[in-house]
């Protein structure tokens, strides 16, 4: 859905989304990576299970919530990627353990 404007000095890290290896630019928000990675969503809703994608990108809408390194309901637009980060798209209601 989105593409990076790259620069030769860019550094990249590896993260996983739902267990799949993905390349991400160092320091970018997790939500930005989700918007480049099919199916371009972050979670499904707690009420009807409808898919949702990052919407406001400034921490206000909470639609980009996902499980990041084991912690559920994290706003992925507010979290920068780091090497080895594990992102899991959140399905429905949050649970204590992913």
């Amino acid at each position: 859905m989105f593409r990076l404007l790259t620069d030769p000095t860019d550094e990249f890290v590896r993260i996983t989304i739902d267990g799949v290896d993905v390349s991400a630019r160092k320091g970018e928000p997790v939500a930005a990576v989700l918007l480049r990675t099919a199916p371009f969503t972050a979670r499904t809703t707690t009420v009807t299970g409808a898919p949702r994608a990052p919407y406001c990108l400034m921490g206000a809408c909470f639609d980009c919530m996902a499980i990041v390194d084991g912690v559920a309901s994290q706003r992925t637009c507010m979290i920068a990627v780091c090497e080895g980060m594990r992102v899991v798209r959140q399905q429905g209601k949050r649970t204590q353990t992913p």
Binding site: R3, E28, A32, L35, R52, A53, Y55, L57, D63, C77
Partner: peptide
């Protein structure tokens, strides 16, 4: 407006400034 694929202009601009990415 809740469908994936709909987002705000401000959000897209944040992605441009903060993550250097633009619509495909």
């Amino acid at each position: 407006w809740t469908l994936p694929g709909v987002m705000t202009v401000g959000g897209a601009q944040t992605l441009l400034k903060g993550a250097r990415q633009i619509p495909q």
